[in-house]
């Protein structure tokens, strides 16, 4: 039975209201503070490292994103760690919060469909993260201009914009997941706990577990071990398993986009390097092509997780 009207009626109203809520919320303020402080620390280290090594580098600006000096990880690595936290913070009580405040049925009694409510919430949270990341991006460019004194080239800007877009989709995956859990669990605390658990598992535990699982699936040939080499089969398995984590996908995509000399993200065999011109930066399009599968993973993950939450939410009863 076809219902009348657009499923997106009221979407913009929900979007604007949720965006205003997020931006003025203390929770968002705290998350922003956390991200900015750690990112600034990483940037400070990067800038001081770059100012010491005045090597000629056509991609000086991009080095700001990727350079790391112990004990701080690079700017991109910090964002890879903190973006999920932001997304979870914005999404974990999206739906169950409405239930618990008993506002859901009142809002849905207005002339809108649920579609608009869920999509509006999702897009508003994504826009909030997008705004924060864009601000952070401008901050990096600005600091680079001030302290390195090198105007960024067109390709650097393009690559860093790709970074921005991929980062937003990376946030999208975690946001979709958090919203899914906010639909599944009626208690916001449970949803938050489960989201954070998944986050910790995928970012901290999974990188340790994946090699072990790969060993179990494809045990390393002892002949390789004798030579002190890694079994390529095991290495491939390890990498494929690691890629189940959005964190890894984000890291790989960023490696390809922000380090233009990256020629592949998989294990490299020696005969692939024969005749290769080393150290030459890849054209922009080629770097994008290398990062493309990872980006696709993040985009498709965002959409599929959202579709899943959407179906669950649509099938859910309004009454508490």
């Amino acid at each position: 039975m076809r219902r009348e009207g657009s499923p997106f009626q009221g979407l913009s109203t929900v979007f604007v209201k949720e965006l205003a809520d997020h931006i003025s919320s203390i929770r968002m303020l705290m998350l922003e503070f956390l991200v900015v402080v750690t990112a600034m620390a990483a940037l400070y280290e990067a800038i001081s490292t770059l100012r010491q090594n005045t090597a000629e580098d056509p991609f000086l600006l991009l080095r700001l994103f990727t350079i790391d000096r112990a004990p701080l990880p690079s700017f991109v690595a910090i964002l890879g760690f903190l973006i999920p936290l932001m997304a979870i913070g914005l999404g974990f009580d999206a739906v169950n919060g409405e239930h618990n405040r008993r506002t859901l049925s009142r809002i849905l009694a207005q002339p809108i469909y649920r579609d608009a409510l869920l999509m509006g919430k999702f897009l508003a949270a994504l826009a909030t993260i997008g705004i924060s990341l864009a601000a952070l991006w401008l901050l990096v460019i600005g600091l680079g201009l001030i302290f390195l004194g090198v105007p960024p080239g067109g390709e650097e800007i393009a690559r860093s914009l790709v970074f921005l877009i991929v980062a937003i989709f990376y946030a999208g995956v975690w946001l979709s997941l958090a919203m899914l859990l906010s639909i599944v669990f009626r208690s916001a605390a449970t949803a938050a706990l489960v989201s954070l658990g998944i986050w910790l598992f995928l970012t901290v535990l999974w990188p340790m577990l994946a090699p072990a699982v790969a060993q179990a699936i494809a045990p390393a040939d002892p002949r390789y071990a004798l030579l002190g080499l890694n079994d390529p089969a095991t290495a491939v398995w390890t990498q494929e398993l690691l890629r189940l984590s959005p964190n890894d996908l984000f890291g790989e995509a960023m490696l390809a986009v922000l380090s233009p000399t990256t020629r592949t993200l998989g294990p490299v065999f020696l005969d692939q390097l024969r005749g290769a011109v080393m150290g030459a930066p890849l054209p922009f399009g080629e770097s994008i092509m290398i990062a493309w599968p990872q980006t696709v993973g993040l985009v498709a993950g965002t959409i599929i997780l959202f579709a899943f939450s959407y179906v669950l939410f649509q099938r859910q009863e309004v009454r508490a």
Binding site: P7, V296, A300, I303, A307, Y310
Partner: peptide, 26 residues
């Protein structure tokens, strides 16, 4: 592979559209 990736995104979007068509407007 680029096209395949776009295809994957397309399939995901189709899935989303299917979900909207099947469960939308409630």
């Amino acid at each position: 592979w680029g096209m395949a990736g776009a295809g994957v995104i397309g399939i995901a979007l189709l899935l989303m559209l299917g979900a909207v068509a099947r469960f939308g407007r409630r």
